[in-house]
Design a protein around this nucleic acid. Structure first.
Lengths: 217, 217
DNA sequence: GAACTAACTAACCAGATAGTTAATTAATTG
DNA sequence: CAATTAATTAACTATCTGGTTAGTTAGTTC
């Protein structure tokens, strides 16, 4: 009894699942902070509190580890997005909800945009070979297509909006602001990350997108 | 006479100005391609066809060299922008001209957006200490402020548009599309860099911004 | 409880990395 | 033309890099 404490979770000295999890979490942080080339395998191991060889044991290489981190990141944002209940909303409000969602998600998960950035610096070579991520994003596009169709039919939205262009613009307005916060804050001499400025940016984004997609009467 | 050819430019074996220029040009390419951490000092020297120590002789360090490259990039885009003759245009058209300019400039100078990206990955630490870049960008903001004031006065533009937000949105819609072209093309399964798609993106950007800034009558 | 498997560790490696040193040589100047 | 200065080179260094090797040890299975 004394050997196995009962009211604490058991701490086996070996735990493959936990080790994998710790590595993935540490890798996400490190890749987001430093980019792919800037990330250091030793630093990931240190952050995870794990021997460096464990990364190679479980993931094979720095590249494969990054691919896994990226896949997980895409899955998480799309799962959260899919959890929104948009079907009962009027089409214009559904679009506004998506603008708000992507902004909130970027703010809550700053590592997401940095990982995407890192991947594009690598010319998207990891994401190209991920069938899963491709599936995930296809349904994401389909959802927007549905909303636009619904809005075009009931006359609330324009009928000539390309869902790809719209998705890109929604992401762009928030993503660019956040990823370039350092140069922008310096150049425009304003703390663009203050709560007031963040709220204002969301207002501008919604205003801009609404104006573009809503049918003018 | 035969020693110094007259109809060719002289090629002195030593040429400080030319060496500096070659280093800066090579550094711009390398930093844009690989980011700050990913860039290799040896590769810059090779590209420039110059001994590595020349970089240290003229620029002191990898960091200072990057700062210089970044400053030059900002100066170039703002100089080109300032050369536009916008005063005689109606305010809405002046805004459209600026949307078109930034898009064309990004396409013509893909290294510019990649350098900005690299700098933000470095948390903007180089640009913070560049007084010149700050000056350059202040006049860039003033120009937009003037256009908005003119448009608000003559009733063609809304009078509640923040020039900072507008500048950011204009940059965002193009910048994001281009910097993330690899993941976006994969995810949406479309070659977003084909001439047709590029033209369509400019159309969407102009449509979006016009709709937001123009006063609805 | 012996045999086996998978988790884990430590020490190591070859090549790369930013930056330095010290000497050489071409242009300039008085 | 001698002295000086600035451009240029090659060789070097200490440290870091992703990845490997070879072994040890904790759980599991039969």
């Amino acid at each position: 009894m004394t050997q196995e404490p009962q009211n604490e979770e058991k701490k086996p000295r070996r735990n493959a699942a936990a080790t994998r999890r710790k590595i993935l979490s540490a890798a996400k942080e490190e890749f987001a902070q430093a980019g792919f080339e800037g990330a250091r395998v030793d630093r990931i191991a240190d952050r995870a509190g794990v021997n460096k060889n464990m990364l190679y044991h479980y993931f094979g290489s720095k590249d494969s580890l990054f691919s896994k981190v990226l896949d997980d990141a895409y899955r998480d944002i799309r799962q959260n997005e899919a959890a929104l209940e948009l079907d009962h909303l009027p089409a214009p409000e559904a679009v506004m909800a998506l603008v708000e969602f992507s902004w909130d998600y970027y703010l809550k998960h700053p590592e997401f945009i940095r990982l995407l950035n890192a991947e594009n610096q690598q010319k998207g070579r990891h994401v190209k070979s991920s069938a899963e991520t491709n599936d995930i994003n296809r349904t994401h596009l389909d959802r927007m297509r549905e909303i636009l169709k619904r809005g075009a039919t009931d006359g609330t939205l324009r009928d000539d909006i390309d869902p790809v262009q719209l998705n890109i613009s929604i992401a762009a307005l928030g993503f660019f602001y956040l990823i370039n916060q350092h140069t922008l804050s310096t150049v425009y001499q304003r703390d663009l990350m203050s709560p007031d400025e963040l709220a204002e940016r969301l207002r501008v984004m919604k205003d801009t997108i609404r104006c573009w997609v809503v049918r003018q009467h």
